[in-house]
Design a protein around this nucleic acid. Structure first.
Lengths: 164, 164
DNA sequence: CAAGATTGAGAGGTCAATCTTC
DNA sequence: GAAGATTGACCTCTCAATCTTG
């Protein structure tokens, strides 16, 4: 057989491999553990937390479903269901948009704000312990800069890329 | 209301934020597009590809189910189902382990090898275009090094962390 | 009893189709 | 016709429970 002798035609170089594999494995490991700790601490899933924290940063603590989808890099249908669950739990409320009857606004409730603040302690502590703690300030700066350079706009802009 | 005035108790610094958000967004964006291109090109999903490429690198192009789970940082039950599907498509075969009757080996078939080689072209091209192309060799080296430093062992070792 | 593998249940995510409003 | 939202179908993934073998 000659298949064993012929290596990949376009194999990753060691640095390509490290930069790619590192991202995949760090992401998988941190998000899995983070999910576990958030659930244990307050019953929020990571996607619940992400949605709530997105709302916290928005003017009026409210955003339309489609804007939420764009900012979270998620498919609109996903937003429908997460908001549905969070609404049942009283953490967000749906509100009609006066200026556009097609649009639905998700508004953070005071209970939602309370809960995201509590979850944030757990969240930040976990991200720091698992991922950030072993890096110096300068290294974190470099890392963020490299990611932004690798995919300009993905990191820095609110919305990228849109589902269109 | 005083809630608007009080910011987070332990907010991320700008560098923490960039390093964390960057990873999340780059990962989400690249893997989603990669999944699309792989499916379009040859019908393999990203998890199919990941399993096959893991087998390619193993001695004898074979690995037990549990070893596969450890290397891929996946739950064993996931492996059962992916191997099940790939077996039906003739890309891997299940084989009994002579030295341990509990163990099942997944072996890459020649058809599987063929297909992963084809998929690899698409995969590597996409990862380069979407993620690696805008970085210099030195920057990729730095990026890989920072990820390894952030989570020692996660990037470099085959197996971390185990499901236990 | 511990380890390897599998099953059923359920959450997270996408896509295509649909409905309503612009 | 296009945009916003939702629904149904399906894939990815984890967890708890089970079965078998060491």
């Amino acid at each position: 057989m000659s298949t064993r002798e012929r290596p990949e035609p376009d194999a990753f170089s060691p640095t390509e491999f490290a930069a790619w594999r590192g991202m995949l494995r760090v992401h998988a490991t941190v998000t899995r553990e983070l999910e576990r700790r958030l659930a244990e601490a307050g019953g929020l899933s990571l996607s619940d937390y992400a949605l709530l924290i997105t709302l916290v940063g928005a003017p009026g603590r409210r955003l339309s479903m489609s804007e939420l989808a764009r900012r979270m890099l998620l498919h609109p249908s996903r937003i429908t269901r997460v908001v549905g669950r969070l609404e049942q739990e009283g953490l967000v409320a749906r509100q009609a948009d006066e200026s556009d009857a097609r649009s639905v606004q998700a508004v953070l409730t005071s209970k939602g704000l309370e809960q995201v603040r509590v979850a944030q302690i757990t969240h930040h502590a976990a991200v720091r312990e698992l991922y950030l703690a072993r890096l110096t300030e300068a290294e974190r700066h470099t890392l963020g800069g490299l990611l932004e350079k690798a995919m300009p706009g993905v990191v820095s802009s609110e919305v990228w890329p849109p589902y269109e």
